[in-house]
Simulated scan of single mutants.
Amino acid sequence: MTDSTLTSSQLTDVLTMAWSELGPPAVAIELLHRTGDWLTTLDTAGFLDLDTHPDTTPPRATLRWAEAIAALAPDAPPGLLPANLPPTRHHRGVLRIAAALASAVPVDLGGAVGDMDRPTTAHVLAAISRSSQDRAQWYDPRLPDGRPSAHLIPLYLDGLADWPTTQEPPQDSELPLWPARIEEEEVAQQAAAHPAPTASLPLSTHLASVLNHLRPIDRRYRYETLGMRSAPGILSESIDVRRDEDGRGGAFFTGPRPMPGPGEERLWLRRAVDPHCWHLLLVPAGVDLRTVPFHKLREVGITTVSTSPPAPGNTPVLAGTDLRNPGGGWTVVQIGDVLAEVVHLEDAVTGIHWARPGGKRVGVTIPARPREAMERLLTWPGVP
C-alpha cells in the first residue's frame, strides 16, 4: 500500500509490532523514527506495505529495505525518492545503517557515518548497542575463602549507549552586574522601537549604544574547522592574487576600498573553488600569508572585503536587533539606501554584510568591536 497517511509514530508502532513477532528488537525502525522523516518519506514513496484487517486486529507493516537502499544509488531511476530531500532529516547513512541492522543490506560503516553530526551519531551508537542479542554478563561468584564456586550467574546489563534525549536550547545568561543588565534591557527596548537606524558619522548615541552592547558569539557555538591545522597558507594555494600600491590592479573589484593604514598591504584575491567571489585584504605588517590558511584570516587581524554576484533566493536583510544571540549579537542599520547586518563575531571581530540595489553581495570582516568597526567602515570609499 502506497502513502498510508500514517504519522511517523504510527508507522513506528505497526512496523515494531510486526518486527517484534519475529524476535529481534526493532532498533532499525526506532533509529529511523528518532532521527528524521525517513519513515513517512519511504511510506509516501511506496516502500512500505501496510496490511490492515477489518476487525480490531492492529495493522502490520513491512519495509522493503533493499529497494529503498537501491533508490539511493546515483544511477537509480528518477522519481523513486524525491530529488531534494533535506539532509538534516534524511541522512542517507542513517537509512543504510538501519538496513544493515535489519539484516537486509550490508553497509560500509565508515562511509555511512563520515559526515554525520553529533546528535545523529549518538542515535546510531544507541541503535548499534541495542541491537545486541545478549545483554547478559556471566560471573563466577567466589566462595568465602576466595575459591571459584563453579556456579555461573548472569548479570543483565543495559545497552552500552542509551537513546539520547533532546536538549533544550540554552537560555540567555544574565549579566552578573545589576546596573549593566538594566542598561542592556533599556538599549534592547530602544532598538526594538527604532529598528534599522541610519549609520553615519558621527554615530548617533542610540546606534553607538546598540553596537557597544552586542555580545560576541558564545564559545559553544563557534565553528571549528577540523583537520586544517597543517593547511597551507593562501599564497601556496591555487589562488589568483593581484597586488599594486596605486589600486589600478583592482579595476575588477566593485566593493568598498579601504585605504591601507601604516604598515598595511592591500591586495585582491580569488580562490579557484569560488572564482566569482573577489576578496580585498588589508594585511598588517609582519603577517606572512604563506603560513595563514584562508579560514584563519580574521584570527591574525586581517580585514577582508568580499564581493559576489547576486544569489537567487537569497534571504533579504530585515530590520531588527538581538543583543544576546548565542551566534553573535547582531543589529541591522541603514547605510545610504541599503540595509546592512552587523554581527559581533568572536574575539572582537565584526562582520558586516549587505546587498547592493543590483543584487551584488558585499561582506566585510573587520578585526574590531562593532562600534569601532562601523566607524571605520563609514570612512571607506564605495560604502555602501
Rank of each mutant, 00 (worst) to 15 (best):
G247W: 11
G249E: 09
G250A: 15
A251Y: 14
A251K: 11
F252K: 06
F253M: 01
F253T: 02
T254F: 06
T254Q: 12
P256A: 05
R257E: 13
R257P: 00
M259S: 14
M259Y: 08
P260R: 12
P260G: 12
G263F: 10
G263S: 05
G263N: 11
E264S: 04
E264C: 04
E265W: 05
E265K: 10
L267T: 06
W268M: 10
W268N: 02
L269N: 01
R270I: 00
R271T: 15
A272L: 04
D274L: 10
D274R: 15
D274P: 00
C277W: 00
W278N: 03
W278D: 12
H279I: 00
H279A: 10
H279F: 12
V283C: 08
P284M: 04
A285H: 15
A285V: 00
A285I: 00
A285E: 15
G286V: 03
G286L: 03
G286F: 11
V287L: 03
V287K: 10
V287R: 07
D288W: 10
D288K: 10
L289R: 05
T291H: 15
T291G: 02
V292W: 12
V292Q: 06
F294A: 14
K296W: 09
K296S: 15
K296I: 00
L297R: 08
R298G: 09
G301Q: 08
I302K: 07
T303R: 09
T303M: 05
V305C: 09
V305Y: 08
S306C: 06
S306F: 04
S306M: 05
S306G: 13
T307F: 02
P309K: 07
P310E: 04
A311R: 14
A311H: 11
A311F: 09
G313L: 03
T315H: 12
P316G: 02
P316Y: 04
L318C: 03
A319I: 01
A319S: 13
G320F: 06
G320A: 02
T321A: 05
T321R: 05
D322L: 05
D322S: 15
L323M: 07
L323I: 10
L323S: 06
L323E: 04
L323G: 08
N325E: 13
N325C: 13
G327V: 00
G329S: 05
G329R: 03
